[in-house]
Structures are given as structure tokens and as C-alpha cells.
Design a protein around this nucleic acid. Sequence first.
DNA 1: CAATAATTTGGAAACGCTTCCAATTTTAGC
DNA 2: GCTAAAATTGGAAGCGTTTCCAAATTATTG
Lengths: 352, 352
Amino acid sequence: MSKKGVSASKQATTSKVTIVDVAEKAGVSLGTVSRVINNDIHVATETRERVLAVTKELGYVANRQARSLAGGKTNTIGVIVRDLGTGYIGEIIRGIDSELNLSGVDLVLYTTHRMVSKEASYVASLAQGMVDGLLLVLPRSPVDYIGTLMEHNFPFVLIDHQGTGTDCPAVGATNWQGAYNATEYLIKMGHQRIGFITGSMDLGCAEDRLQGYRSALRTHHITEDAELIYEGDFLQTDGYTGASALLDLPNPPTAIFASNDVMAMGVMDAVRNRGLRVPNDISVIGFDNIPQSAMVFPTLTTVQQPLEQMGRVATQMLLGILKTPEKESGRIELPTELLVRNSTSAPIDRAG
Amino acid sequence: MSKKGVSASKQATTSKVTIVDVAEKAGVSLGTVSRVINNDIHVATETRERVLAVTKELGYVANRQARSLAGGKTNTIGVIVRDLGTGYIGEIIRGIDSELNLSGVDLVLYTTHRMVSKEASYVASLAQGMVDGLLLVLPRSPVDYIGTLMEHNFPFVLIDHQGTGTDCPAVGATNWQGAYNATEYLIKMGHQRIGFITGSMDLGCAEDRLQGYRSALRTHHITEDAELIYEGDFLQTDGYTGASALLDLPNPPTAIFASNDVMAMGVMDAVRNRGLRVPNDISVIGFDNIPQSAMVFPTLTTVQQPLEQMGRVATQMLLGILKTPEKESGRIELPTELLVRNSTSAPIDRAG
DNA sequence: CAATAATTTGGAAACGCTTCCAATTTTAGC
DNA sequence: GCTAAAATTGGAAGCGTTTCCAAATTATTG
């Protein structure tokens, strides 16, 4: 008593209502209350309603920790992201969030701050039972731990990553097709020299976008010019320096395709900084469609990645795996879409 | 046995090492192992080392759920944020994260997606025992629940919010001073007509920044012109429309001070969109110093808010409260600093 | 050297819930 | 109307810790 008295005073909340209180008040056993809470079929309708009423009356809230301990699952999933700086991740999390809300599962967030080493260590410790499953957003070096994860049969879904070789649950976007379409759009508008700024080339999506660009050129019989390809790292400054380099070329491009929107912003800065205009002098096109893209001026033509939807779908997949682990689930590709806005136009005829 | 066999096969991880296994192997009681793990003083050095060795050998990892259940605390804190779209929140979380890493406490993230209603409901359910404490980043309507929180004596810290009237743990920045300094800097450079774009006026920080701007004008005997103040909502588009409106004035400003960096980006867009140049024709100044500010061109002069540090300090405060609840902690204000970059210069002499 | 105090350890009772087994009640079948 | 099957419920054994109490061991003191 005295012992409990002390800890109770330190207890922040007054919520001391347990399943036992409910059982007592409802005149049933504790097991029955548990069944009601967990929507077990084996409980009479009349009993269920009575229990539910008492539950509400007493303001009973299940103790997560106890449930986890007894039930063997945490009702929590871990989300590992690289950083939170750009709108990109935020959109994905929005999708994850909304899906999780419906299922009463919680989200524990881990940020690696672009440090590769942290990725593996987070994965290791989280898989140790702290969470039921893992969502890996834009993982950098999944090879390090995917093997372990699969070996231990630990549920996880990759978001926006491809090309591990092994076939594992993942959701991505049609990066190749998106880049192809965007490039083709520029070509059909009359652009012949199109600069390209890549993303982090250790990421599958970056590679795919580059290949899409290349294929489009090839299809339209435009010889690829290595000078027009600048390797970036998905950061705004890369867009700026890349565009600057491209514009310094003896024969500069009339359009620049950046592998993500953030770099495209940098490109626009660089273009304007030289007194050129977007899109009049240089067309600019991005990839992702982060919220900001519609808010800058000129608004950015970009390849929309269904970021929120990707988060949502990945969450559904993970929840599905959690429910029925035996059911195999592979890679899902969500379609990208070219969003034409105001940063692109036909090239001016310099020859004329 | 058969029962465990089944659930074991469903168990994802192989980590079945419990405190009991360690105790057995080390030849001590389970209580002793617990003491070692928790750094209890009452354990012989020799015993401690032996236990520690076994712990490592067996790869023992404490079960969080069980600890929480038995110990009465979750070792988790909840972080409630508005959104993740801008770098602003990301920086703060980075600070929280690094501080939390050191203490082995976990972070459960809740995003309200700018929906005020969600704030209160999250707070309510989290305070119900799911987390030990709460970090509220840029809360919108804290009045709704701060009372309840304090009543129940539930640990929490407000980040970047002021003016609730009640004195509660909070960390903020010297918004007033920052705005004052920025405005004064512009004035001293020769600007007389300075446009101002406010943030969400239901947020204390936005109000403070406006007042800082006003005070600086007053100090330097510049009559305030209501036309030069445009009410925004911290979004990029507000910067654009606000700047457009200001530039349309018969007597437009020579400098524009946006209440945050994101809006300042919008301002720069608007300025350039009219064929004017930053900073030659119009000086632009922001507030926050999000990472992007150093990456745009021209780089943005801004008032640096120590965002990461705010996250860090707030976390320390919360952890402190968790440890010694009786110790009162009030509001902490971290200093802001004017960061002069390339988006500001002396005004051109139009009269001349 | 006995007696007392201090240190170290073992043991067991929670923590709040899930889940299995068995008992009880109800329903169906003939 | 009686038996077998199905539905419903109660009871209890964990889940892996923490923490309190008491026992055992060691050190201290007069």
C-alpha cells in the first residue's frame, strides 16, 4: 500500500483503470473483457455490449506495454529515414501516418542524418523486438542488413529503392518511365541539347532516371553528349553548380532536367543568376513534385512521384505482412506522371 | 511446449535471451542481473563484471515492454509537430534526436498536418501512459490542453511558443530581438521603406517578430506604414503574394523582411518575376536560417534561430523533468543572430 | 571475539494484459 | 427428452522486467 502510494504520487496520469476494474464492474471475468477488447468472436453480444459500456464509463484505456508483453507484439512500427530537410520525406511520412492512424499502430521515427553507419545499427536494434516491422525510406546501403532481416524473417518494406537483386517487399515509382516521358516531352518541344543532373548514384532511383533520359534520347536519335550529364547528390547546391557548369559549356543546353525538385530549384537559381530566364532561355524540369514545386515562380514542371501514396501503400503492405506473414509480397511500382507547369517551353531559335 | 513452439516460429527475431538466461549462466539471481543492468550501486564489482560479460556473450538485449510494465515508465517521449514540409521542423528534430540518442530514450512522432483538432487528441491519448513526456513543437492551440497536462502533472516542454500566460517549461528564441536587429540593420543601410510579411498571427513568435520590426522603426523615427505590413501564414506562397502586393504599391518598399525563410524564398521569386533583382533593387531578409537558405542564390540574409539547439535544450529540459519532477523549470530563450549574406544591400538612390 | 552494522544477494510479488484449458451453459439432432 | 456438439465464460499461467523485503555474507567496532 505504502509502496503503491509513493509511486502513485509520481505517476503523472490518474488513469489507473485496468482491465480488472472493468471486469469487476461489468461482472465478468478478466478474460472476457480481454476478448471484447480484441474483438474475439467468442463472446455473447449482450456481454460485449455491457463490457463496452463499462469500458467507456470508466474511461478505460488499454496499457500498451502490458499488451505487448503478453501478446508478443508491440503495435509499433519503426520508420527509418535519411533526413527531414526536404519536403520529399515529409510527404511519404504523411502517407504512412494516415494509414497508421486507421490501424492504431504507432510510429517510431529514426533519422540517420545521412550517416550510412547508423542505418544498419538502427535496423539491428529495432529488429531486436522494439518494433513489429520496419519501413525503410530511401535506404542507402540495404545490402548490409536486408540479408539479416530476411533470414530472421523480420517484416519490412523498402520505400523508393530498387535493384538489390534479392526480391523483397518494396514500393517504388516508375522512375525510368517518368524520366523517359519528361525527356521526350522536352524533345518534342524542340529541345535538342538537354542537360541532365543526376541524383546520388548509389540509389537505384537515380540510376533509373538517368537511364530513362538516355533511352528517350536514343529513341529520338539524339546522340548522347557526356558533357551534358552532371553528377549530383540530390542537394540544392548540386543543382546550382551543375547548371552553372552546363551553362558554361561552349554549346550549352536549352533545357536542364534535374533528377529531383530540390536540385531543380538550384538550377533555376543558377539560370537566373546569369541573367537568363526560365523558361524563355532555359527550360527546367524536376522530379518528385514536392509541395514547394507548385509554390516557386515560375512553377516547376516536374515528374510527379506519388509520394504520399507510396507511404500509404508501403504501410498497407507492411501491415499485411504483419497479419499474414506467409503471403509473399514483392515489389510494387506506382506510376509517375509528368506535370507540366511554367518552367518549360519551346527553345528559342538561336540560330535564327 | 507446443504452444511456445508455434509462437516461436512466428517470432521474427531469434533473440530469446532473457534476464533469466543471463542470471543462470552467470550463476546469480535474476534480481542481481537487473541491478547490474540498471547500474544499481549495491552490487559487488566482481559480480557486476561477470554479469556484464555474460550479457555480452549471450547478446542480451533488455525487453522494453517488460521494463516499462514493471518499472512504470516507457522510456519513450512523444514529439508532436505540425508538419514536416519545411526544413524548420527537421532541424529541431535533429537536435531532439541527438540528445535522445545519448540517453537511450525513444521518440514517437505525431504529425498533426496542421490540423488543430488533432493536437489535443494526440496529447490526450499520449498522456494516457504511452509516453513519459511530451515535446510540443510550435503548438497551435496549447491552451486547450496545457491546463490538463499541468493538472495531471504530466511532463512536457513547449518548443518555440510563447505567451500562454501560464508559466510552463518552454524553450524559444529571442524573436523580438532578432526582428529588431534585422530591421535596424536594414535601416542603418539606408532603407526607409521596409515591407514586412508576418507569420501565422496565432503563434506567439510571429507576433514577437512583428513587434521587433515595429520597435526598430520607432527607435529610428520611421513612421510605421500599415500598407507595408502584409499578413502571411508562414507558407512560401504568402511570401510571393505578399511581396507582389507590396511591390504594387505606389510607393513600394526597398527592402522586404519576411517572418520566415520559406516566405523569403517566395519574396525572392516575386521580385525576380517582375524583372527586379535581389538585392540590387530589393533587399530580402528572412528568419530561421533553414538549411536551404544557404543554398539558394543569392544566399539569404536571415535571422538565425538556433533550431537544432532548441531541440536539444528542450529535450534536456524534458529529460530533467522526468528525472526530478519537483524541480521547477521555466522558459528558456535562446539567442537569435543576424546572418548577413547576399540578399541584402544598400538601397539604390531612386531620387538621384 | 562477540555483536552490530553495512554490503551484497536471493526470492517473490507485482505490472496489466493475452491466451490456453477446462468448465459451464446453450443449442441442435434424433 | 436425452445426448452430443457448439457457444460462451472463468480461471490461471505466463510475458520479462523492477523492486521490495529478508536472508546471508562480510566488514567494523568496542
